[in-house]
Design a protein around this nucleic acid. Structure first.
Lengths: 186, 186
DNA sequence: TCGCACATGTAACGCGTTACATGATTAC
DNA sequence: GTAATCATGTAACGCGTTACATGTGCGA
C-alpha cells in the first residue's frame, strides 16, 4: 500500500457504498465526487488489480442479458478495516495551485481588461458548477432518501456550493475594482 | 518551454516584480503566493537555469559586504513578452483533490465523531490561515503603498480570505449537523 | 560550537495524466 | 453504417516532491 497515493482509499471508499465495476466507479465519481476528487483510468484499473491482489477487494464476473461481461468488485472485511483506519487518520494538508490567481497576482504587467476577462470567465464557470451541484443535491435527496450516506454526501455538496457562492461574491468585487482602475488610468 | 508546467511563468512573474535570486524568489513566494501557488527547490533552480539558457532572464553575480555571493536574475524583454503572452491566455481549469472532503464523503463508515474531529481541525487550520492573510494584507498595504502591483496583490489575498470565511461558515454547519446525527443515533 | 538562516543546486522516485489499444452493444 | 456508450486495460511521459549534497556567515 502506497504511503502517499490516496487512489486506493478512494476506490475502497466507493466499494464501501456498493459492489461495483471499475467503470461504475468512474461514473459514480463523475456524478458525486468530481467536484473535489477524481481518478483517471490509468490510476483506477491498476489500483483495482492491486487491491484485489492484496485481498482488500474481491471480484466476481457478472453478465446480465444484453450486456458484455464485467468485473464486479466488492470490499472485503480486510479492505473495510483498512478503509476505516484511513478514514480515522487526519487528512494531510495538500498544496493548492490556482493558475487564475497566479495570473491575477501578476496582473500589473497587463491591462486590467485582461484580468477582468479572466475573472469573468471564472465567474461563468463557477455559476455553471453551482447549478450542477444544486441539481446533484436535489437528485441525491430524491434517490437516496434513506441511505446512511446521504447526510455526508449532502455536506460535501454544500461545501462546493458555499465555496462557489464565496467565489462569485469575490468575482463581483474584483470586476468592480478592475473597472475602477481602468477608468482611473484614463 | 514546457506546454504543461507553469513553473517558468511563475518565475518570470516573480522577476517581473523585481530582480531577485533564486532564494529570494522562494522567500517572496512563501510570503505572498503560498496561499495559492508555490514551487519547490527541485523545480525552481532548474527552471532558472533553463530560462537563462533561453535568454528569457539574465544573470548577474552580486556580493554585498558580509554576504556570500549570489546570482541575481532579471527578466529580459524577451522574457517579459513571453510572460505577458501567458498572462493574456485563459487559465486552464485544474482538478482539485481534497482529502478531507473525500473522508467526509465516506463518513458513514465511521462514527460521526471521527468526521467532526477532522472538520474541527480544518476549522482551526483555516482560522490560522485567515489570521496570516490578514497580517499579510496589512503589511502589504504598508510596505508597497505606491506599487502598481498592490491592488492585484490585495485582490489575490482577498480571495483567500473570502474563501476562508466561507469554509469556516461551512465547518460550523457541518459540526452542528454531525452533533445532531450523533444524538439521534443514541 | 552548535544550530539556524542564507544560498544553490542534483538525483531519484512516484504519482497522475494522456494517449493508445481493443472490442462489444445500442441507438440513430 | 457509424457514432456513442459500455468496458477494461497498458505504456510513456513529465511533473513535482523529497531527500541529498555542499558551503557561508552569524548569533547564542
Amino acid at each position: 500500500m502506497s504511503k502517499t497515493s490516496k487512489t486506493s482509499y478512494a476506490v475502497l471508499g466507493m466499494l464501501s457504498i456498493a459492489p461495483m465495476s471499475g467503470y461504475d466507479i468512474r461514473q459514480t465519481m463523475k456524478e458525486s465526487t468530481s467536484n473535489f476528487w477524481s481518478e483517471s483510468d490509468g490510476q483506477l484499473y491498476p489500483a483495482l488489480a492491486s487491491l484485489h491482489k492484496q485481498g482488500l477487494i474481491s471480484c466476481k464476473m457478472e453478465k446480465n442479458e444484453n450486456e458484455r461481461e464485467k468485473k464486479i468488485y466488492s470490499i472485503t472485511a480486510k479492505g473495510m478495516a483498512l478503509l476505516t483506519q484511513w478514514l480515522t487518520r487526519a487528512a494531510e494538508t495538500q498544496s493548492v495551485r490556482s493558475e487564475i490567481l497566479l495570473k491575477l497576482f501578476f496582473g500589473a504587467n497587463v491591462s486590467p481588461d485582461v484580468s477582468r476577462e479572466h475573472i469573468q470567465m471564472h465567474c461563468y464557470q463557477t455559476k455553471s458548477m453551482l447549478a450542477q451541484l444544486a441539481a446533484s443535491k436535489k437528485q441525491l435527496q430524491h434517490e437516496h432518501k434513506d441511505s446512511p450516506h446521504l447526510p455526508y454526501w449532502l455536506m460535501s455538496i454544500d461545501y462546493g456550493m458555499q465555496i462557489a457562492e464565496a467565489k462569485l461574491a469575490w468575482c463581483d468585487g474584483v470586476i468592480e475594482k478592475l473597472n475602477k482602475m481602468k477608468s482611473e488610468r484614463k
